[in-house]
C-alpha cells in the first residue's frame, strides 16, 4: 500500500484536490482511501462518500491533534490494509501549524492556497517546510503576478519540494499529482518510523483542564513571554 500525508490550513482545498486525484487513481485501478483528522468538526466524510471514496473520520476533540495523529496512525494504517487500499491518504487540517503530520520515508504533501496571503508560505512552518510535494490551489482567483510572487515565496520556504498548481474545482493539474503518487514506493510497515518534526514541549495545568487566566504560574514545563531571564527572545 502506498501512503501519503496531506496537510494544509482549513479550507485550503485539500479535500477537493484529493477527490479529483483519487478519481484519476481509481480509474487506473488504484483503490484510494482517505483518513480525515480534524479537531472539532468535519463534514469531509460526506464529501468523500458522495465521491465514492472509502474513508474514515477522526475527531481529536480534547487532545492535541498532532499527538492524536501520531498515536492513531498505526491503526489507520491497519484500517487501510483491511480495506485493501492501494493508496492511503491522511488528510489533516492546519491545526496550530506548529507541527506537521509528515513522517520520514512516507511522501508528504502540503496544500496551500493563493488567498492565504503572500507571507503564508513563510508562516506555514514544518507542514510546508518538510513536505516533498507542495500543491498550490485557488490560483484561478488571483492575478498571474500574485501567483508568481506566491510561487516564489513557497519556493524559498521549501527549496526541495516539487510544486504543482492544482485547481480544486476543475481538477486542472491533478494529473501531475496522480502521476507523482503512482511513482511512490509501497509502505510495508508504519511502526518504527519517525515523525519529520518534533512536537512542541508543553505539559502544564492547562493541558489538564485549567481554564482560569492568572499571573500565578501554571504548573509544569511551560515558558512565559515575559518571564525573568526567559522569554521568546
Amino acid at each position: 500500500m502506498k501512503m501519503l500525508t496531506f496537510a494544509g490550513a482549513h479550507a485550503c482545498g485539500k479535500t477537493s484536490v484529493i477527490i479529483k486525484t483519487a478519481a484519476i487513481l481509481n480509474e487506473t485501478g488504484l483503490k484510494t482511501g482517505v483518513m480525515k483528522l480534524d479537531c472539532i468538526f468535519s463534514d469531509d466524510d460526506s464529501l468523500y462518500r458522495a465521491a465514492g471514496i472509502t474513508n474514515i473520520k477522526m475527531i481529536s476533540g480534547n487532545v492535541c491533534p498532532d499527538h492524536f495523529f501520531a498515536v492513531s496512525v498505526p491503526q489507520v494504517f491497519e484500517w487501510g490494509l483491511e480495506n485493501r487500499l492501494d493508496v492511503l491518504i491522511t488528510e489533516s487540517a492546519g491545526l496550530c501549524g506548529r507541527c506537521a503530520p509528515h513522517i520520514r520515508d512516507i511522501p508528504a504533501v502540503c496544500v496551500i492556497d493563493c488567498l492565504a496571503g503572500i507571507s503564508a508560505p513563510a508562516k506555514t512552518g514544518p507542514m510546508l517546510r518538510y513536505a516533498d510535494h507542495i500543491i498550490i490551489t485557488k490560483a484561478d482567483l488571483v492575478s498571474p503576478a500574485e501567483r508568481e510572487v506566491f510561487l516564489h515565496n513557497v519556493r524559498i520556504a521549501n527549496t526541495r519540494a516539487r510544486i504543482s498548481l492544482i485547481n480544486g474545482l476543475t481538477g486542472q493539474g491533478a494529473y501531475r499529482l496522480a502521476a507523482y503518487i503512482r511513482q511512490q514506493g509501497e509502505t510495508e510497515e508504519i511502526r518504527g518510523k519517525y515523525l519529520r518534526f518534533t512536537m512542541p514541549s508543553a505539559e502544564c495545568s492547562y493541558c489538564a483542564g485549567q481554564t482560569v487566566i492568572d499571573d500565578a504560574p501554571a504548573a509544569g514545563r511551560i515558558k512565559y513571554a515575559w518571564a525573568a531571564g526567559g522569554g521568546t527572545g
Partner: peptide, 20 residues
C-alpha cells in the same frame, strides 16, 4: 519538465482578481 513546470505559461483566467 520539472524545471519548466510553473514557469512556462502565464495563465489569465476569467475569475482572476487582485487580492493583495
Amino acid at each position: 519538465r520539472d524545471k519548466l513546470e510553473n514557469r512556462m505559461c502565464a495563465y489569465l483566467a476569467q475569475s482572476m482578481n487582485f487580492v493583495m
